[in-house]
Every structure is written in C-alpha cells, then in structure tokens.
Nucleic acid binder design. Structure first.
Length: 874
DNA sequence: TTAATCACG
DNA sequence: ACGTACGTGATTAAT
C-alpha cells in the first residue's frame, strides 16, 4: 500500500507559460529572469499546497520525436523559441538541481509521454498523481488517482481536471479527449483534425458515438451533409490526428517512480541561485526559515589587557567608527578574526597595545579589510601607518560589478547571504537618535563585520579571477587605495582669508543685483526659487516659455540665454545665479570644510562611479570653478601647506580622444595625434575638406563639439543642443564625421554589438560595466545603454590610465626621495605641492611618468604649470 | 526626500 | 516616432 504523492511537471510548457505571463525582467547583469521567476513561483505554490513525496520535471528532448515520423509537420509553424527564453533554461535547470528535484528527458519523446508513462505506473500503484502543465492535452491522463492541473490566467492559478470536472466541462470522459483532438485538431501542435469541425461539433459527435472509430462506423447516421462530406474526405487525417494527440503511456523510460523521491531543497544552494538572479522577494520569503531562530550567536572576546593580545599572522580586521567620514570620526575599536576566534579591541586598548601597533605596521602580517582606504586613513590619523593590506571587500565588490551599491559591510554580506550583520543605521540609530551603543553591542557588530570580510574574501577573489579582473583589482585599485588615503590625509591648505575676501565682494554684487532684479520685476521674490522665478518671467513679464520641467517652467541657463534679448532682466538673473552659486557652494561651502589644521580633506570615492573614475565628496574638490574668471579666482585660496612651497598641476591633453583613436584604430585619427596636430583643427580640416588656413574658428568650434559628442555616444539631438543648430544639420555633421573617420564608425558599431552579446563592456584594463538595458524593448532605455556602451570604455580607460599614473608617480616620488606630495586628482589632472627646489625635477618626471603610464598607439601628452596657488597653475 | 540648477572633467 | 548628449556632487526650495 503506497501513500506516495507524485507531482509531475511539464517543464517546457510551464517555462513558456511563465515567460509569456510575465514582462521581460532582467537582473543587474542583463540576464532575463522572468521565466525562471514565474516557474519558481509556481513551484513554490505547488510544493506548499501539495507537499509531494515524489517530484519530477519532464522536458522535451530536442527537435524530433516519434510523432514526426507519423506526421512530419507535427508542431510545424511554431515560432522559434525567443532567445530571451532560451537563455533562461540553463538557469532553470540549475535551480531545479538546487531544489533537488529530479529532471528527465528522453530522446524522441516529449515531456507528455514521460508524464503519461509515469502517471500510469503511479496510478497503478495506487499513488496519488498530480500533473501540472499549460497544455490541455494532458487532461486525457486524468483518472480517479490522477488530477491534471492546467494553468489558467497568470502563473499560479491552476484549473484542476478530474474525470468529474472533464465530464462537467465537456460532457466526455478523459479517454475521449484524444478523440476530440482527432476530430477538431489542435492549431498549436499543427494537428489538422477534420476541417469544419470545432469543439462544439466534436463534442456533439462524441456524446453520440463515443470515439472517432465509432463515428466512422456509423458515418451514415451522422446528420449534416457538409459535415458528413468533410468526415468522409478526411478520415485518414482524423485517425492520424487522434494518434498524434495520444500520449504514449509505455515510453521506454530509464527511470522509475522511486527515482522521483523528493528530499526537499538544498536551501543554501537555492539561496545562492536566488542571489545570482537577484530574486529579492523570493529571498525574503526564504529568510523567515533561517531567521525564525535567533540570529546565530557569535562569540566576540573583548580585549581588555593590551599586553595579553597576540594577533595571528593573517587576520580580517574592521575598524569600527560611528561616523561614515573616517577622516573626522573617532575610532571605537577594531573587530578582528583569524577565521576561528573573533576579538574586539576597544580604541583605548589599541592605543596602549604595542603588540597590536607593531602588528598593524608589519608588512608581513596580512590584513583583510572591508575598506582599506578608510582603514589606512583612520589609523594614520592616530599615528599608525598600516602595512600589509591584502584584501579590500569594498574594492573587490566594486570591481566585480560597479553597480553594486556598497553602503556598509552589512549590505555586501547580505548580498552574498553570508554573515548576519545589522546595518550601521540599526546599531547606531539615525538622525537625532544616533548614539554610541554600549561596548558589548559594538564588539559584536565589529566582530561580525570582520567575520564577513574573512568569509567573503575567497568568494570575491574567485569571482574576480573568473572575470579576469584580479589584476585590475590587486595591482591597480588596491595600491591606489593607499595612495588616495595618503592624499586625503594630507589635505589641501586653504586660505580662509582669500575666500572671505571674495565672499565680501560677491555679497556686495549680489545685493546690488537683487535690488535691480526686484526693481525690474516690480516686486520682491526669491530669485533662487525656479518656481517663483518662472512665475515672474513667464506670467508677470510675459516672456515665452521655451522648455518645461516636470513641475513647471524651466529657468535653466540655456533657456534664459535664449531669452536674453527679450528682456534685460534676464542678464541680471544669469549673473545673479552665477555669483550666487559661487557664494553658496564655494565660498560658504568650502569655508565650512576647513579643518583645524587649515586644510580641506576631501574624500575620494573609489568604488562609486560606473565608469571607473573617482569622485570627490565632503567637499567635492573636483568641481572647483575654472571656466569663468570670476569663479576661477576661488582657486587662489588653495595654496601650498609649507612656506616656500609651490603648487604644481599637470593634465593630460585630449586623453579621451586619444583613447578613442587607440581603441578604434582609426588611421586618420591616429595620424593626427602622431603628428601632434591640434585635434579639433585637424577634425575640421577633414570633415569640411579644407586646408589648415581654411579652418575658421566656427568650423573648429563645430568640430570640437562633434568630437565631444563622439566620446559621449553621439546623437543628433545632443549635438544640435550643444551647437544650437537643428537636428537635421547636426545629423549631417555626424554622418560626414563618421564617413571621414571610418574606424570610429566601426568601433561604435562593434562596441554596441559586443555589449549586446556579453551584456557588458570593458575598458583596456578589463574594468566592466554591465548594461542590462542594452536589449530593452524600450527605445529610450536601449538608446541610453547604447550611448553608455560607446562612452564607458573611453572614459573608463582614461580613468585606468590616470590611476596607473598615480601609482607610478607615488613610486617615483619615493624612489627620487622627493618631499613633493600628491594632493588631488581631477579626472585627467594631478595636483601636487612641492618645495621650490623640486619644481624643476617635477617638470621633468611628472610628464614622463604620466605619459608612459600605459602605451597606446598614439602618444599621451601632458601639460603642466606651477605657481603659488592653484589659481596660478595655468 | 526629490527636483532643479549648476560647478567640474 | 520615441527624447538625449557621458560621468560626477552640493545647494536650494519645496514636498
């Protein structure tokens, strides 16, 4: 006596069903996931509701089946499986393996036949059998012990076909389903049936005669002339159709019921796949199973005796701080683990422990960290220079995928579903409630982070090796982290007096402008409010709005410039805006950022941008004004920190276009750079077909804009905006340009194709950016991804180059025993401060090092300048 | 918290 | 036909 409950799933049918029932979803690496997701949802429901003891997913094997020898056009005329679905089958199979659900396919047979054969055996054993499919053909297998569930609308709504239900719905028995198909055919399988016979006629005939055979035996009695004619004429076809629709219940399977035993899922494995596919909701659903118990206890030993602690040779460490700004925050302590023991060293103990300090200093003692730059800089502030930094969780995660948003260790650990860590926000509270928790909680928190770093290291390093990104991570980003840490700690001396002086002048001009604007507007209003300003300009004064924003009229500078001739208030507003920006962001903003040491310490975000560039925060020193003289004066406040020293600045000339020339292998562009031509003039010469003297300033300006556009992933609209011309004219320029530089054209096409194939693009140093939208059916999303595909390898390679230059430069300064300090990086520019007697040396070595950071098919060119302030380095 | 604006490469 | 140039961060107003 068997109490088995056997569930048989029609894999292909359900995958199709899921695929078409759900919109095309993609995860962050561009893999479509809707079919896998939908399938999983169905599976979850079935497992929950039916609680099967035995389970099987049956698949169709290949293209041909024994049915094709009967009828070669069987299932003919079907649309090809969409590639977006095909690519999901491997994941589906992997997921089912993780669930430990048996899967089976058999050459020459369809999933139906596998299901049919097993259901008959199960049925005969007295087991309860449940069949799940999207294909109504299967209903022929229904019996007292076998229920056939067919998907209705959506993905989880199933219609249960028992013999009684079939009788109620069609008035026939399950065995008669094949007779019905024989008569009416099945368009989806390309089974012909008898012309003119649909469901209604087929059922009428079967209710009267029972089977196809009986119908033909009593053909004379059938009423209806046309019907009789059709039946007579297509007798052979009717029998063949019945045969085609009949599911084989004696297929030569190499498995039996006992092989279908379902032991339940391998949860860790399932989770890992959910992680990979980014099934957030399914993951959360799983979470209660693991979180239902108390969070796994970890034993963190708090070190109290500075003499009693001997760190191991290799340890994961996490410097715990309350504030995210490690340049300003106090350290509360260090969580450490060697993979076995977890300890927490409170700050005061650390500072007293000569053993620990010596360990941190020792190059031979390996440290794995969550963020090596923060670790380095925060300890440097305490006079401890850390060496032997061997792993950086933040950088490893970022290199593997720059779109991964790393906020704290908890977020990464959660991403990889590893160690349970509370978000910092939960431990410390947020906003006004932010406070230092008691030491026990802090120790536990820091300990867990160290443990996560320890456990995640092998996983991430394997991933980086797999992607051939280990070198980028280990030889470029990690050494750079330390250099950036040094730069941040060094800071830039800022003369508050100069800022204040400029501030006074600005304030005077601003209040003057303010009165003029109020006068002209005939009322007071907040000029800084786009809403109020829009009302004044477009309603009160009655100017014509050119552009709208989501919330109202656009008052952006490019719009106002077009209106400048319409009303003299516009000019004053533009000036007011410009000066207001300088005052609030740069004078007031920067003044607040000057530390007690008279310096500004920006932080470089090394794991943020999607292209590999750095960014600068608190404050941003990468956007200090330069284009307009009024703003440029701000740079006079950035001065050397030692008396008698100078500022020294060096920037790459046209680095992105040089990278483009190299990557596209465009002969003309390469030649232009090799000959040392002015690239925009040369472009103008080639595009407009004139000689050097024939290039007007307007032509050069146009060529320059087109060059920029090319780097950004050009569009006619974008170029038309930047040149203030029509789209058509812009389009013409682009066509001419691409015809002139065929290599560039080919590069742009190739890179988009590559992005579509791989789902990502790479820089010269193998930095990746995933572009899931590149296959989107949404024009805007796709176009954006295409432009990004064109721009990222260029911008990213330029970023690779300057990063390499920074590492080389740091080494060179050390090798030459110079006192010069690297202070800032502004994407294509490095800023140093140096004693006067080293300036001559810098003029020689800085260009040399920067120009040889990476060898391209075109030379890299560096320009430099020095002076008594940043303003003077021009 | 979001949108608009504007500073940089 | 679709609506945009690529990558950032800070400030302000308004919700």
């Amino acid at each position: 006596m068997s109490k088995n409950k056997i569930v048989l799933l029609d894999g292909n049918s359900l995958a199709y069903r899921a695929f078409f029932a759900l919109p095309l979803l993609t995860n962050d690496t561009g893999i479509h996931t809707n079919a896998v997701y939908g399938f999983t949802m169905m599976l979850q429901n079935i497992l929950e509701e039916e609680k099967p003891t035995h389970l099987l997913v049956a698949w169709d094997a290949g293209k041909t089946t024994f049915r094709h020898s009967t009828f070669s056009e069987y299932k003919g005329g079907r649309q090809k499986t969409p590639p977006e679905l095909s690519e999901q089958f491997p994941y589906l199979r992997k997921l089912l393996d993780a669930y430990r659900i048996p899967q089976y396919e058999l050459d020459q047979y369809e999933a139906d036949d596998i299901i049919g054969t097993l259901s008959k055996t199960g049925d005969a054993d007295g087991s309860e059998v449940i069949i799940i499919s999207g294909d109504k053909d299967l209903t022929q297998l229904a019996s007292d012990h076998t229920t056939v569930c067919i998907t209705r609308k959506g993905i989880t709504d199933l219609e249960k076909y028992t013999p009684a239900h079939i009788m109620e719905k069609y008035g026939i028995a399950p065995e008669q389903i094949i007779d019905m198909k024989g008569l009416m055919g099945d368009a989806s399988d390309n089974i012909p049936g008898v012309p003119g016979v649909g469901e209604k006629t087929a059922l009428k005939l079967l209710k009267e005669y029972g089977t196809v055979e009986k119908v033909y035996e009593s053909l004379d009695a059938v009423s209806g002339k046309k019907l009789k004619e059709n039946l007579t004429e297509h007798e052979e076809q009717a029998f063949m159709s019945k045969k085609l629709a009949t599911i084989e219940v004696n297929a030569p399977l190499t498995i039996s019921i006992k092989d279908l035993n379902y032991p339940g899922p391998d949860e860790d494995h399932v989770k890992a796949i959910y992680e990979e596919l980014k099934f957030k909701t399914l993951l959360e659903k799983m979470a209660p199973q693991t979180e239902s118990g108390p969070i796994e206890e970890i034993d963190v030993q708090i070190i109290t005796d500075p003499e009693a602690f001997d760190p191991a040779d290799v340890m994961a460490i996490h410097v715990e701080m309350m504030d995210e700004n490690y340049l300003a925050s106090d350290i509360s302590g260090i969580g450490m683990t060697d993979g076995n023991q977890i300890v927490f060293v409170p700050f005061e103990v650390m500072m007293q422990s000569d053993k620990l300090k010596a360990w941190l200093l020792d190059e031979q003692k390996e440290k794995y960290t969550s963020d090596s730059k923060a670790t380095f800089a925060s300890l440097l502030r305490q006079g401890i220079e850390v060496n032997g930094l061997e792993f950086d969780l933040l950088l490893a995660t970022y290199i593997a995928n720059p779109s991964s948003s790393y906020t704290d260790v908890a977020s990464v650990a959660k991403e990889f579903n590893y160690v349970e860590i509370q978000p910092d926000e939960v431990v410390y509270g947020k906003g006004a409630k932010k406070a230092m928790p008691e030491e026990r909680i802090l120790a536990d928190h820091a300990g867990r982070k160290a443990q996560a770093v320890w456990k995640l290291k092998p996983i991430l390093e394997e991933k980086l090796r797999e992607n051939e990104q280990f070198e980028l991570y280990r030889e470029l980003e990690m050494p750079l982290a330390k250099i950036l840490g040094k730069m941040e700690s060094t800071g830039v001396k800022t003369d508050l007096g100069i800022l204040q002086q400029i501030g006074i002048e600005l304030s005077a001009k601003l209040s003057e402008l303010e009165s003029i604007i109020y006068e002209m507007a005939g009322q007071k209003f907040n000029i800084n409010s786009p809403k109020q300003l829009g009302e004044i300009l477009f309603e009160k004064i009655g100017l014509t709005p050119i552009k709208k924003t989501k919330t109202g009229y656009s008052t952006a500078a490019d719009v106002l410039e077009k209106l400048e001739s319409e009303h003299e208030i516009i000019g004053y507003i533009l000036t007011y805006r410009q000066l207001g920006k300088l005052n609030s962001t740069y004078i007031e903003g920067l003044s607040k950022e000057i530390h007690e040491d008279g310096k500004i310490h920006t932080r470089f975000q090394q794991a943020l941008t999607q292209t590999g560039r750095l960014s600068s925060i608190n404050p941003n020193l990468q956007n200090i004004p330069i284009r307009l003289e009024e703003g440029r004066k701000i740079r006079a406040a950035f001065v050397p920190s030692e008396p008698g020293w100078y500022m020294f600045a060096a920037d790459y000339s046209q680095i992105e276009l040089r990278v483009l020339a190299h990557m596209s292998e465009d002969e003309k562009m390469i030649a232009a750079f090799r000959e040392g031509e002015d690239i925009h003039t040369k472009t103008a010469m080639d595009v407009f077909g004139v000689d050097k003297d024939g290039v007007s300033s307007d032509m050069r300006r146009t060529a320059k804009a087109v060059n920029f556009g090319i780097v950004y992933g050009i569009s006619d609209y974008g170029l038309s905006q930047s040149l203030n011309i029509t789209r058509k004219e812009a389009g013409k320029f682009i066509d001419t340009y691409l015809a002139t530089f065929p290599g560039v054209k080919r590069y742009m096409e190739d890179i988009v194709t590559q992005a579509k194939m791989n789902g990502y693009v790479v820089t010269m140093m193998n930095r990746r950016r995933y572009l899931p939208d590149i296959t989107s059916s949404n024009f805007n999303l796709r176009s954006f991804a295409e432009r990004t595909a064109m721009n990222t390898p260029i911008q990213g390679t330029a970023a690779d180059i300057i990063k390499k230059a920074m590492i080389d430069m740091d080494a060179r300064l050390k090798a030459e025993n110079l006192q010069t300090r690297m202070l800032l990086q502004v994407h294509d520019e490095l800023i140093f401060e140096a004693p006067e007697n080293e300036i001559e040396k810098l003029k020689e070595i800085v260009p040399e090092v920067m120009e040889s950071a990476l060898t391209l098919d075109v030379p890299l060119k560096v320009e430099w300048a020095s002076g008594l302030s940043w303003y003077e380095t021009k």
